[in-house]
Computed example of a mutant assay.
Amino acid sequence: MLFRQLEYLVALARERHFARAAQSCYVSQPALSEAIRKLEDELDVLLVRRGRTFGGLTPEGERIVLWAQRILADRDALKDEVDALRTGLGGRLRIGSVPTASGAVSQLTGPFCAAHPLVTVEVLADLRAEDILHRVRNFEIDAGITYLDPSLAESFHTVALYEERYVLLTGVADKLARRPTATWTAASRLPLCLLTTSMQGRRVLDEVFAGLGLRPTPRVETDSVASLFAHVRAGRWASIVPYAWLHVFGVPHGMQAVPLVEPDHSAPIGLVTAAREPGSVMARALVETARRTDTAAVLERLAHPPGS
């Protein structure tokens, strides 16, 4: 069994198409197909349903893909470990983040890159919470920044980073912009632009509103926090955004950020990595950075933005 055969099988499972899988592996389609056939012969089990087009993986194939992902991840982790012992940590760190937390990712990547100058970082900043866990579990990313839940401790290592708090972002002409705080009830009456219901950040807001017996209907929904700011800037909408994003944009001209109260609600955000030992040297290095960096202290100063 060769690593190359496992790589081809994982690519096929990801692309669900022989030609695209071959292209992603920089080989011809016949070469990829033949390598997978040889893997099936060696394992004495059918992995792929074949017809005129890709017919999917067999149940056995789905299980073998999980093993292949783990084996390839351990191979990469071993190579990274050896490289780190020889010349210092190098390679590529892959981080996934939910949109609401992506504005705070630089609080980790900055000190991480300073400590490990040979490492490049790839940040996927618009992933759903469930997608982050799926990708960490399948070794597609090294770590995720997402909402923490006690149930995660069963399958993942977690490091708490900060408590996500919320502000009402509105135009300066709105009467709520002249108040030191705004209630969630008052915010629900505004023409709102919010994240889509597929995003965990939106579900958090809906839970707060539901606890007050409210169910606001936003006029505009988006999967981008930056788009929320853009719509408020247009002057027709208000939004509810995490205060961590003020670290990125501040309070743009013509807008006001008003802390939301009644209730004072927050949601825990943290770093999530796979619970396996010894694990990825990249993930371990990022965890060390997270534990040394007081992300909450930096963002806490933005909880009550000046002039709000």
Rank of each mutant, 00 (worst) to 15 (best):
Y162P: 04
L176D: 04
E122A: 10
R178M: 14
L176T: 04
G55I: 11
V119G: 06
A153E: 13
A114W: 10
T185I: 00
V65H: 03
L124V: 08
I71T: 14
A143D: 04
T109Q: 13
L108A: 06
T109H: 08
L190A: 10
P59F: 01
P111F: 06
D74C: 04
S188M: 03
A115Y: 01
E130P: 03
V172M: 11
D142H: 15
L78H: 12
I132D: 04
P59K: 07
L176F: 05
P150D: 04
K175V: 14
L176K: 05
G51S: 15
I95R: 06
L152R: 07
T100W: 00
E140L: 12
E130G: 11
T185Q: 11
R135F: 13
L118G: 15
P99T: 08
S155P: 00
G90M: 06
T53N: 10
T185W: 02
S188H: 04
A173P: 00
F156E: 06
A104I: 07
L93V: 08
L57Q: 04
R86T: 12
E130L: 12
G110S: 12
T170I: 12
G61Y: 07
P111A: 12
R137Y: 14
E60A: 15
T183Y: 10
V82Q: 09
R86Y: 08
A125W: 09
D74A: 13
Y147G: 10
G103N: 05
S106H: 12
F156Q: 01
H157V: 09
S97D: 04
E130C: 02
T170W: 02
R94T: 10
Y147H: 09
Q107W: 12
I71M: 03
A187K: 03
R50K: 14
D80N: 14
T120F: 09
I95P: 03
P180S: 12
V172S: 14
I132V: 15
L127G: 01
T181F: 13
V119H: 05
P111C: 13
D83Y: 07
S155V: 02
F139A: 02
F156K: 00
T87E: 15
E163D: 13
K175Y: 10
R179M: 14
L89Y: 04
V82E: 13
A84M: 11
T120G: 07
R189C: 09
L168V: 14
R50G: 01
P117I: 06
I64G: 01
T87C: 09
L148S: 03
L93T: 05
R50T: 05
F112I: 07
G103L: 03
S151W: 02
R75K: 13
D83P: 00
V123M: 08
W67F: 09
G90C: 11
D174G: 02
A153H: 04
A115E: 13
T109A: 14
L168Q: 01
T100G: 04
G96W: 00
D142Y: 11
E122D: 15
N138E: 13
V167N: 02
H134C: 01
H157P: 00
L78C: 00
L127K: 05
V65N: 05
A187P: 07
G61E: 10
H157K: 12
K175S: 14
Y166V: 02
E164R: 15
A114D: 15
P111T: 11
S97E: 08
T58Y: 08
A186H: 09
R75N: 07
L89M: 08
K79C: 00
H134A: 11
R63P: 00
P117D: 08
D80W: 11
